[in-house]
Amino acid sequence: MRHQLTFDCEGAALAASLDDAPGGTGLLIVSGGNEIRSGAHRGMAMLAQHVAAAGHPVFRFDRRGIGDSEGENRGFEGSGADIAAAIAAFRQAAPHVTRVVAFGNCDAASALLLHQPLALGALILANPWTYEGPDEDGGDEPALPPASAIRARYLSRLRDPKSLLRLLRGEIDFRKLFRGLSALKQAPRPAAADSLAHRLESALAELSCPVTILLATGDRTAQAFAESCGPALAYIEKEPGAVRVERLASASHSFAGEDGDWLAARVLAALAG
């Protein structure tokens, strides 16, 4: 059964949902971006229902300033107190839970890394966010994806007769085309010491709990993480231990549709571990 409740975070009342189940290992879901606790296309609500049916309690919440919660939205980098308060509220609402595993997608995954240490038994991090603000031209467009993502995208388009026909008809935005092609010539630059990617790498190296990293290989955010944090991932995969990396051949950032079954299976495996 799903219950609605509230809990306190530094004087603000935060809205939450608890899916009851008898298991001693519970799942805390942290929403990414400015999404409410149900997630994109109700994906997190459906994941919670699936996991609870398998016997694990699930706690979801809206951080301050999002959805039904009070307070100021401080973004994922200012959400440490929200996550810590949610863990405490989860344990209070489900006192039989002895181990809490946290799942986050996109910048929620980054938040779970940045705000360590937290009272968690394990982490599940999907498509962690590594982008640093707007594009280099200072416009409103998002930052360019990594060169590997651009290369794969253009190779795919060149193989598609419809894309070539659009090019001949003048239906392609040449400014974006040249901007993308120019990025292919740029050699990857090492992450600056104060960059988000470098801070995530450092947090990964210092973690004391098991971590599962889930990457949708066709998703730009996952591609950016794989390129920005490539050395750390390469080391992790050569020296498997407390960190596991699993990949799905998909472009769905939120693991929509049938990808949701793959996600649920990996979450349940982490909960069982």
Rank of each mutant, 00 (worst) to 15 (best):
Y131D: 15
A234Q: 14
A48C: 12
L184S: 04
L114V: 00
A192E: 07
A94C: 12
A264C: 14
G170I: 04
G39A: 11
G257K: 14
S69T: 12
S208A: 04
R153G: 11
C209W: 10
I124M: 14
R151E: 06
A40H: 12
A122N: 10
S69M: 03
G75L: 12
A45F: 08
V267F: 03
L196N: 04
Y154K: 03
M46D: 15
R244I: 14
M1R: 14
A265I: 11
L112G: 00
L184F: 05
G241I: 07
G33V: 02
A249S: 09
A15G: 06
Q223V: 07
A264G: 08
A15C: 12
F225Y: 08
A48R: 00
A40C: 05
I213E: 07
I87C: 04
L123V: 11
D62R: 05
R179V: 08
R99D: 10
L112I: 04
N34W: 13
Q92H: 15
L263D: 10
V51C: 02
T6V: 11
G75N: 12
A81F: 10
D8G: 06
D137E: 09
V97D: 11
R266N: 00
E227T: 00
A93W: 07
R159S: 14
A126E: 06
G11T: 09
L118E: 11
E171F: 05
L27M: 05
I29E: 05
E246C: 09
G218E: 11
R220Q: 05
D140V: 09
D194G: 04
C229D: 05
P210Q: 09
H198M: 15
N127I: 01
E237H: 11
E77S: 13
G23P: 03
A205F: 11
A192V: 06
T130K: 05
G33E: 00
G65T: 02
V51Y: 01
E35N: 14
G55A: 12
H96V: 04
G33A: 01
L14V: 11
S202C: 13
Y235G: 15
L248G: 02
F76Q: 01
K162A: 15
D194K: 01
R199C: 03
A191Y: 03
L155M: 14
S228A: 13
I87E: 03
G218C: 00
L165D: 14
R60A: 07
F225I: 09
K238S: 14
G80W: 01
H253K: 02
L233D: 07
R153L: 14
S252R: 11
L113M: 12
E141L: 10
A183Y: 03
A111T: 03
S110I: 02
A48M: 01
H253V: 02
N105R: 05
N105W: 01
A86S: 15
I87S: 05
F59K: 04
E239L: 13
A21W: 13
G138W: 10
P117S: 01
K176R: 15
L233W: 03
S148C: 10
A256H: 15
L268G: 09
G133A: 10
F59C: 08
G23R: 00
S38Y: 04
A264P: 00
E10F: 06
E10A: 06
A12R: 05
R189D: 09
F61L: 02
A192F: 01
L27N: 03
G43C: 03
I213L: 12
L125R: 08
A89P: 09
I83N: 07
E72W: 11
D219C: 09
L263E: 01
S148N: 04
V267H: 08
I124L: 13
S17A: 15
F225S: 04
R169C: 06
